[in-house]
């Protein structure tokens, strides 16, 4: 080998090392500011109702690789924002027999800033805890005269919930767990700690006991849902919370619950409450 060839080989090896370390390591100490202006809380003290199960809560963003983290820091790099923009168009589009759009009632979309941060939420009229998706469906069938509401996991619904989340980005999550919501919250907690499927894995086994650890090549997060709907690089689309829950239970070799089921509504309330103190990031970018 000539001296020059050697140098090239060494340089290439060094580059390969740098590339692989970039690809593998997440910067768990990084801070997230979106567009240089929306300051996110990606780590903070756990809410009191977790009774010390974890001391600190972390956004899933901190567990992602540098390049994935970077995509969420600028709306031009965040593919999820394209869907949020489509959601904004839908928000202003008349639908249903009454010729109304969302904007007909919600004339100032900024009034919806706290929605993502406070749902799922007890709905007095319906006597049940409602998700954002259920609230949209309620508007569609009960106010806008639509015969059939959007499906919970339809592209329209994902776009709309991405838009609603985007309005509230940076808002501190504060989901109510007491009063009439408590029975649902208790049911969600029960599900969180139940070991499902042939692999007998609970949410807690991976996301409470083992966050920060690798399971094969996957870096386990706390399973926080403050970034939903989330744009996943894995499937290059928006993913809703219940669909993600479904994927986790499927991976236990278990029989999943249905999207929109009472079980997943309860689990969403419980998991959302574990993120009280983090900030709304949807639509976030994850792997």
């Amino acid at each position: 080998m000539t001296g020059q060839t050697k140098r090239v080989v060494v340089a290439m090896a060094a580059l390969a090392l740098t590339a692989s370390s970039l690809a593998v390591w997440a910067d768990e100490d990084a801070d997230l500011v979106v567009n240089g202006e929306i300051e996110m809380v990606v780590r903070t003290d756990a809410p009191a109702h977790l009774d010390g199960a974890v001391r600190t809560i972390y956004s899933g963003w901190v567990f992602r690789q540098d390049d994935t983290q970077a995509m969420q820091m600028d709306d031009f790099d965040n593919p999820g924002m394209l869907f949020a923009e489509q959601g904004q168009e839908l928000f202003n589009t008349a639908m249903g027999a009454n010729g109304e759009s969302c904007a007909s009632c919600h004339t100032n979309a900024e009034d919806l800033t706290r929605v993502r941060a406070t749902y799922p939420k007890w709905d007095e009229a319906h006597g049940a805890v409602q998700t954002v998706e259920m609230q949209v469906q309620e508007c569609q069938t009960e106010s806008m005269g639509m015969a059939e509401a959007w499906g919970q996991n339809s592209q329209e619904m994902l776009n709309m919930t991405a838009y609603i989340a985007s309005i509230g980005r940076g808002q501190v999550i504060d989901v109510a767990i007491d009063g009439p919501a408590q029975a649902t919250w208790d049911a969600g907690k029960e599900i969180y700690y139940t070991r499902y499927g042939q692999l007998e894995l609970s949410c807690a086994n991976c996301h409470e006991q083992n966050y920060g650890n690798y399971i094969r090549a996957d870096h386990l997060s706390q399973g926080q849902i403050n970034g939903f709907p989330t744009y996943r690089l894995k499937n290059a689309r928006l993913n809703g919370t219940h669909n993600r829950f479904r994927g986790c239970i499927r991976d236990t070799r278990g029989e999943t619950f249905a999207i929109g089921s009472d079980e997943f509504i309860a689990l969403e309330l419980y998991v959302a409450s574990r993120g009280n103190g983090l900030t709304v990031e949807g639509p976030s970018v994850r792997n």
Partner: peptide, 21 residues
Amino acid sequence: VMPSFYKVDGFTRPGDAFTGK
């Protein structure tokens, strides 16, 4: 946390492998 590798019953909502069904 370890799964039981030679066990066939006593599961909660056992599925059909990784289908979710």
